[in-house]
Each structure stands twice: as structure tokens, then as C-alpha cells.
Nucleic acid binder design. Structure first.
Lengths: 208, 208
DNA sequence: AGGCTAGTGACAGCCACTGACAGTTGACAA
DNA sequence: TTGTCAACTGTCAGTGGCTGTCACTAGCCT
């Protein structure tokens, strides 16, 4: 059961989040000040910083949710699956539940537009990549445990996750710049790219 | 021939760079202010910002040099080489010339210590990853041209580079945290990891 | 009802960074 | 050599992200 105080906090937090994303996507990340966000929700700037570690943090809050959901999805894969297959299936099958998680806080439309803002704002892209790196470290440990190997001596868990993450990012980037800007298209794009990794590594591409 | 004015500029720039790296590695990036760096070289803070775009920029200036050198090395590979082999050889064989480039500006020892600072400072790691992403985009275009494919319709150049970059970063990270902290060890580590990618992708690791 | 505490606003301050303007110094021609 | 111009630099003032402090209010709990 949620107490009144907790409800108020959650409302404030989500209002700040929505207001921030709205401002970022409509007038740009750099051209939006924290004061503006606070003003839009009618709280003090100081309060904003009590809910979010900073401007970057609020911009990437939804991404943080989806990454956590993805890690959970990988953890939930049956243990007999090979590592790369587990990652692939977690991504493709977990998509819908991730969508629901997002939608409970922020309109999906807004989230999608925010993706483009992140990709086109250097400061945000940098923060996003660092977060991805941290998630990859977590995933490497999950895979290592599934397979019963030591993550500190065996590089394969980290290598597998790094390759997977690389493919995801290529797909993300392609998706952001394309016109086919829907939740479904990133799934098909990712599946397609994952299938092509092998052929990409074993050029020669001219004859292939 | 270098004019007096140009020499002065270069000296100021390199002094700022060395002073900055020295301060960053000895007392930490966050705990170093731009005023301190400027003061150490006895110029105004405003002058610092005329030589470097910001605090991040000076921290990653040497990395920027090495990445540019690497891209050049890839461009110089014979065109009949397969893509992944070109990347691999450019990295392994270009190492010595890169070392010389670095040493002409900054002691190698300082550069190595800076690597650890970058890896352990969130803000710097983020900026470093973003720079890597930009370099990967450049490399993808180089590979696409070598192979005569269109980088906008064929995902394989970007995929190949993403995989390669992922492996490099895993090696970098491992190297930073190990005791074997020499220029030579990262080369052997990278070669080793590149060889293991295939096996990492085709678990099951328990039986392998 | 009244004390306790989480949450808040207001204020002051630090630091990265920028624009504007004036002073200085090297380059180059007369 | 000297005068002129352009490049370079310092000073100053200001913006914006972010933090510490402290008094105050509002919800919680007995």
C-alpha cells in the first residue's frame, strides 16, 4: 500500500520526467534549462535535483528502465540456452513487456522521440554509451554465472556481450535515422543485423 | 618552417596539455579545476579555452591523436586484405609508430596513467566512448570504400567495425585493471582476444 | 493533539564555459 | 627601422549546472 507522501513523490517525479522529455524533444536538450523544467512543474530547482542526479539523468531515465528490464529478461532465460541465443531471445521476446513498463510512466511516442534527441546530442550520446557499457558489464557477469565460468579470467563473457552490444547500437543508430520509426521496426532490424554478424566478420563482401 | 608565433602557440598548448594530464593523474580529474591548470602554466583561464574546447577535450587530446593515427594506418593497408584482417593488422603493426607520435608530445608513462584515470572517471569514460563511436563511423566508411559497398544500405561495414571496437574496449579495460601495465601487453592482449571472438560467439563455453 | 521527520524552498556559492572589449605582441611591408 | 595590421591574450561580467545549508511546512505516527 502506497502512502500519501509516497504518491505525492511519485507524481512529482513523473511530472518532472514528462516535462523534461517534452522540453528536450521540442526545443532541444542544450536549450532547455533545469530552471525551466522545475518551473513547468512548479517546484524549485533544488527539488529537481532531489529527484534526479542531474539533467543527463532525467534525460536517460526511461532508457535506464528499459535496460534494467532487459537484464531481467536475460536472467529469466532457460539456463540451457547458449549465451548469444539467450541475449537474442531476451531482446526479441522481452520487447512487449518493456513497452508496457515504459508506457506506465511516459507516452511511448515521447520515448521514441527522445531516442532521436539522445542520438543527436553529443552530451547525451556519451552518457548513453557509458550506461550501455555498465549494463554490458552486468550482462557479462550474468552470462558467466549461467555458463559457470570466471568472468575475471575468461574473456568470453565480456566478448560475447560486447559483440551483442555493438550490434544493438548499430541497429539503434540505423533505426533513429530511418523513417520507419516504430517499436516494431527496431525488433526486425536487430534480428536482421544479428544474423549478418557472421558474414560481416568473414568478408570478402564483394563476392559474398 | 615554423614561425615564432607558431612555436609559442605550440609551446603553450603542450604545456597546458602536460600540466593538465599531470594534475588529472595525480589528484584526479574532478578535483582539478581549469583555473589550476591555467595557473600551472601561468596563463589566464580564458586562454586555456582558446586552446582546448573544455576540460574533457584536454583530457582526451592524446587519445584523439592515437585514434587518428589508427584510422590512417587502416587506410594504408593493402586493399586486397579482408576487412577484419586490415583492422587487426593496422592495430598490431601500427602500435610503434603511434607510440612515437605520442612520445613527441607527452611522456608515455603519463599517457598510460591517464588511461587509467579515464577508465575510472565516469565523465571521461563517457566522452571516450562517444569519441570511439565517432571513430567507428569513420572506419566503417573506410571499410565500405575498400570493399566497394554502400555504407548506408549494407550494414556489414558498421557491424564489422562495431565488433572490432567492442573487442578493443574489452581488451583496454582488462589492461587498465591489470598489473601488466605496459604498451606491449595491450598488443598481446588484443591479439589474444581477437582470436577468441569466434569461440565466444559459439558457446557452449562449459564444454569448450 | 502534538512531536517527529521527510520533503521543500530560498539563498549563497563553486565551477565550467562564453561573449565583449581592450591591451599586447609578432608578422610584414614600406 | 618603423608603422600597420592581425593574431593572440587578459580582464571582466555573466549564464547555467550543481551543491550545501537552514528554516519551514506537511504528512506520519502515537
Amino acid at each position: 500500500m502506497e502512502t500519501l507522501r509516497e504518491r505525492k513523490k511519485r507524481r512529482t517525479r513523473e511530472s518532472l520526467l514528462r516535462a523534461a522529455l517534452h522540453l528536450f524533444t521540442s526545443q532541444g536538450y542544450e536549450r532547455t534549462t533545469v530552471d525551466e523544467i522545475a518551473e513547468a512543474v512548479d517546484v524549485s530547482q533544488r527539488t529537481f535535483f532531489r529527484y534526479f542526479a542531474g539533467k543527463e539523468d532525467v534525460a536517460l531515465a526511461v532508457q535506464k528502465m528499459t535496460e534494467a528490464a532487459f537484464v531481467a529478461a536475460v536472467r529469466a532465460r532457460p539456463p540451457h540456452e547458449a549465451p548469444m541465443r539467450a541475449l537474442r531471445q531476451a531482446f526479441l521476446e522481452g520487447w512487449d513487456s518493456i513497452r508496457e513498463t515504459v508506457e506506465s510512466v511516459v507516452p511511448v511516442e515521447l520515448h521514441l522521440r527522445m531516442y532521436r534527441t539522445i542520438e543527436s546530442t553529443p552530451a547525451l550520446l556519451a552518457a548513453h554509451l557509458r550506461r550501455s557499457a555498465a549494463t554490458e558489464e552486468t550482462l557479462a557477469r550474468v552470462l558467466a554465472e549461467r555458463e559457470g565460468v570466471d568472468v575475471d579470467t575468461d574473456p568470453r563473457p565480456r566478448l560475447a556481450v560486447a559483440v551483442f552490444g555493438g550490434v544493438i547500437r548499430v541497429a539503434e543508430r540505423q533505426w533513429c535515422t530511418s523513417e520507419e520509426f516504430s517499436l516494431e521496426s527496431i525488433r526486425t532490424l536487430t534480428a536482421e543485423y544479428l544474423d549478418q554478424v557472421g558474414s560481416a566478420l568473414t568478408g570478402n563482401w564483394r563476392t559474398g
